[in-house]
Every structure is written in structure tokens, then in C-alpha cells.
């Protein structure tokens, strides 16, 4: 198997050569086709996607030409600016209270942990938090959430496994109103026995929130695993179709993954880049910062 052995050798120092590549690519050389190919490698390795990467590089070519730039080092900031501009197209506005956030996303992306961290964030702002465990599908999904709720002294409302999710949300809203809570966080199932059912359930929850708690600002936040590749686009498309997403959180960005798919998402959807998750503790849930995010791609 010549192909594989060749490839394995080629990949042997992928990581090392990758960061070295980024370092030397912008140093003192003339801009040529090889340069663009290297850039493409960097962008695609960050999971930006082949089509988006191509379009970004086309834009870079245009700007380089317009500004009569000849050296690679002078193009670095231009490339970063292109990415930053895209990310800044969607604005992140401050929350207002009372606030209801429904958290959606497929299983395994770190949804429950993220909810725990968000709860802690609000708790540290002295907000009163209620958590609705509306993932009534997954076995033992609630246990983990309950631990987080106890930790941040949030009220936790849940139902039996297989219970009606929107009924749980209804109860949680009653509880939130009775306690004069500021924030309601709604955990949802990542997957039911089919997509139609899951999406219908989410829509139903949405209806309950708007009907029972109209004074609350209502957000629909999707959690995406940062190690995901291009499938992230499919996930956002589906959930957006069902509930109309407002916010996005990318988790698990403390590894070597860059989560570059958000560039295309920012371009395609009117969705606020809200948080990124970079570790296990609550402090590791950060507000999304377009500048830092782009810098990280070139590290």
C-alpha cells in the first residue's frame, strides 16, 4: 500500500509542520500560486470548508491586487480582516431579562455541560436561574444537569423519562414566574427516534415559551462540537428550519480544532456568535470574540 505509507510519512509531523508553515508562510516572500495553496491548506485545516476557503482566497486576491501588495507578510492582516469582517456581520446584543434560552443541538456536543456553565455565568451575575430538563428522551440525561443546578443553586425542573417535554417547560415557566426568576434555561433532546419528531417537539416547546412567558426575551441557542467538520452546517440548517436559531455556542475548542465552520455560518445565518467553550470548568465558557477567534486560526 504505497499510498498509505507515503501519506503516513507525510503526516508524521503534520502538527509541527503545520504551525511552522503558518509561521514562515507570511515571512518575506513574493506572493505566488504556492502561497495561495498554502493558505488554502491552512484555512481548510481549520474546518472552514473547501468552498468558503476558495471564496475567501478570491477576496484576498482582489484586495491584494487593489492594494498593490507584493509581499506575503503584508497580506496576513488583510486575510485576517476578511475573516473578522465576516464574523462581525452578526452582532451579539446584550441579554435583557427575564430571559428564556432554549438550548438545542445533537447528542454528544456538550450540551448539558454548556447549560451548566451558562447557569453558573448567570448565577455569578446574581441572576436567579431555573433549569428545565426537557430532554426526557435520553436515559439518565437529567442526573448530570441536576448536579450543575445544585452547584449553582438553580431550581431544577424535570419530568420522568418519556414525559412530554413541553409539559416540563410549562412547569418550569410556572416555577420561574413564581420565584420571580431572571433566567430560564431549557435543555432539549439531541435526538428522538426521528428528526421530524424532534423538530416538532422543539417547536412545541417554543410555543409554550411564547405563550406562557411572553414578557421574556426568548433565545434559541445551538451548541456545536468544535471538532465537527462540515456536518455542522447541516446541523444548523436543520435546527434553524425548525426553531429559528438566534445564538450559537461552539464547544471543545481547547483541543487543536479551530472550529472554522463558524465563518460560513456567520455568512449564511443571522445568528449571534455567543459563546465558545475551551475547557471543563465554568470559567472556560467564554464570550465569543471575533478577533481572538481569527487569531487562533493562524496560531
Amino acid at each position: 500500500m504505497g499510498f498509505f505509507s507515503r501519506l503516513v510519512n507525510g503526516l508524521k509531523n503534520t502538527k509541527k509542520s503545520f504551525s511552522e508553515k503558518i509561521k514562515y508562510i507570511f515571512t518575506g516572500n513574493e506572493i505566488d500560486e504556492d502561497f495561495f495553496e498554502e493558505l488554502e491548506y491552512i484555512l481548510i485545516s481549520a474546518d472552514i470548508g473547501a468552498v468558503t476557503a476558495e471564496e475567501i482566497l478570491d477576496e484576498l486576491r482582489d484586495r491584494i491586487k487593489a492594494q498593490k501588495i507584493k509581499k506575503t507578510e503584508d497580506s496576513k492582516e488583510i486575510l485576517k480582516d476578511i475573516l473578522k469582517d465576516i464574523l462581525k456581520e452578526t452582532e451579539v446584543e446584550e441579554f435583557s431579562y427575564p430571559l428564556a434560552i432554549m438550548i438545542v443541538g445533537v447528542n454528544g456536543v456538550g450540551k448539558t455541560t454548556t447549560i451548566g456553565k451558562i447557569a453558573q455565568k448567570f448565577a455569578s451575575m446574581k441572576k436567579k436561574v431555573v433549569i428545565a430538563g426537557a430532554d426526557t428522551f435520553r436515559a439518565a440525561a437529567g442526573d448530570q444537569l441536576k448536579v450543575w443546578a445544585d452547584r449553582v443553586k438553580a431550581k431544577y425542573v424535570s419530568g420522568e423519562q418519556g414525559a412530554d417535554a413541553s409539559a416540563v417547560v410549562f412547569d418550569a415557566i410556572s416555577s420561574a414566574k413564581a420565584k420571580d426568576a431572571d433566567v430560564l434555561l431549557i435543555d432539549t433532546a439531541g435526538r428522538l427516534h426521528n428528526k421530524v419528531n424532534l423538530m416538532e417537539e422543539l417547536k412545541k416547546i417554543g410555543k409554550v415559551v411564547s405563550k406562557e412567558w411572553p414578557e421574556a426575551e426568548y433565545h434559541k441557542l445551538i451548541v456545536i462540537d468544535g471538532t465537527t467538520g462540515q456536518n455542522s452546517k447541516e446541523q444548523v440548517r436543520l435546527f434553524d428550519e425548525a426553531v429559528g436559531l438566534t445564538d450559537l455556542c461552539v464547544t471543545k475548542l481547547d483541543g487543536t480544532s479551530k472550529g472554522g465552520f463558524v465563518i460560513e455560518l456567520a455568512r449564511t445565518y443571522d445568528i449571534a456568535m455567543r459563546y465558545i467553550g475551551v475547557g471543563e470548568t465554568a470559567e472556560d465558557l467564554l464570550d465569543f470574540d471575533a478577533d481572538e477567534f481569527v487569531e487562533a486560526i493562524f496560531e
Partner: peptide, 14 residues
Amino acid sequence: IDAMTGQESVNVAK
């Protein structure tokens, strides 16, 4: 390995 993993999959597997 998760079928939805992005470009990092090679480093993980390696």
C-alpha cells in the same frame, strides 16, 4: 471515532 469529525481526525487517529 465520530463520523462528523472534521480535519482533526487524522491527528486523533494517529
